[in-house]
Design a protein around this nucleic acid. Structure first.
Lengths: 255, 255
DNA sequence: GCCTAGGTCCCGTAT
DNA sequence: ATACGGGGCCTAGGC
């Protein structure tokens, strides 16, 4: 990995360093006193203060204040850069084309600049996502309930959107399964209710609705009961284990 | 502003530097080859690669890969740190207490470390928010329509939630106003419909529903028409100007 | 290209 | 403390 840095560069030195880093698409860090203007979907202005600017090789931009997880100003990947002096300040402009958004960062002092060409091929694996839970339920339908048989997944229901799993229970009743990776709230219940209602109207038959989630919030339980919907607790960990065990089998076997 | 950095430190030197920075609550940057484990609401593992670690004075943590706007792993403000050697690797543990989440970062090589105590009192101002739009509509009700008179704002409607503005038109009909700063979608229409329906049931009178937003999405227009609801285009910029002009006047004059 | 749904969302605000 | 909605959300997947 090649990298370089400067301590307390002049604005001219910093400008040259930054232009070099941007043109070579290296990761760039700038620490200094700056002011930031943003104009695009919304507009904002950040007065002078000491911050960290991060520019990545794909054109992502973040301006970080000393505190707070989120950048105060930013630009997503694909931004285009222009560096120049304006009123004696070092100006870095990052432009996004669609939607058209412009971020202007003005430095009147730079304490530190750093650039590097990072190599990172490391695999990132998240153990359980909502889609994983769906796969797990399709792989092992009894997680929903004994005798449950999936008929379709990600089925469109017109205005209502997409339901996660449609199946039938051991009695042959239609069952709509709504999956949540996080604790299910009122919104999930209402969403399920829309699907169930739509299906009842379409088919004219009895339709059951089941929320599958790690837990259901207390405030959603009343609504669930009032709408005669059901809840089945399934932990992400269980799904992860099912997926690990079921590797190699194809989804198409089940739907 | 005081700041310091090291180039190509040994792991021992890096450990001392990092511990010093964390204990003094300085902003810390580490560039090096690392591996990351996360366990909490979900779980993840990131194999070895070259990345940027940012730790802020409030305990925010971000691990950034060479590309992508978002950090691959992170911890929100308030995290607690522990630094030690494990299997010859420099291990930085960031723990969040609620919910309990642990982020472990292992470095086998450090290219660059930097720390600084940033001072930033600069004011950040966003020109228009959804609440600003509400204030603007209360300040200048004709933005909704000629003769519109606000009666209440943020009014609770039981299970339905809070409606943005309740008012009456020049004919004395009740009007529910639903404000969106962004293009209004199907969800906004359904939300408005819930409020209108609830109010109709409560009052037994005719109730109109109006969505105020910069624009309405195409796919929501059919639903809007079918439910006999209305749309009024209002730009954030217009709201911003109304607010600027209306400064000094109090909200309580209007509601 | 636009749109929809999910996120370890984060974050403010109100309860 | 916890629930709820918004975000310049960002990001991935469909069409």
């Amino acid at each position: 990995m090649s990298h370089q840095s400067l301590e307390e560069p002049s604005l001219e030195e910093a400008k040259a360093f930054i232009q070099e880093a941007l043109s070579r698409r290296r990761m760039l860090l700038v620490v200094g006193n700056c002011m930031v203007d943003y104009e695009g979907r919304a507009s904002s202005k950040l007065d002078w203060g000491e911050r960290l600017l991060v520019v990545k090789s794909d054109g992502s931009v973040m301006v970080h204040r000393p505190t707070g997880y989120e950048p105060v100003n930013w630009q997503p990947p694909g931004s285009i850069f222009h560096v120049e002096f304006e009123d004696g300040k070092l100006k870095i402009r990052a432009t996004r084309l669609q939607p058209k958004e412009v971020l202007n960062i003005f430095f009147d002092r730079v304490y530190h600049v750093f650039s590097a060409e990072l190599r990172d091929e490391g695999e990132f694996s998240m153990y359980v996502t909502e889609m994983d839970m769906q796969k797990a339920l399709l792989t092992m339908p009894e997680l929903v309930e004994e005798g449950f048989q999936p008929l379709a997944a990600e089925k469109e229901l017109g205005e209502s959107g997409f339901l996660d799993i449609l199946g039938q229970d051991s009695q042959g009743n239609l069952v709509v399964v709504e999956i949540k990776r996080n604790p299910a709230g009122r919104e999930a219940v209402l969403q399920l209710e829309r699907y169930v209602k739509t299906l009842r109207e379409k088919t004219g038959k009895q339709v059951r609705g089941v929320i599958v989630a790690p837990e259901i919030r207390r405030e959603a339980q009343g609504l669930l009961a009032a709408l005669k919907l059901e809840f089945r607790q399934v932990s992400p960990r269980r799904c992860y284990e099912v997926l690990k065990a079921g590797k190699g089998r194809k989804l198409s076997e089940f739907i």
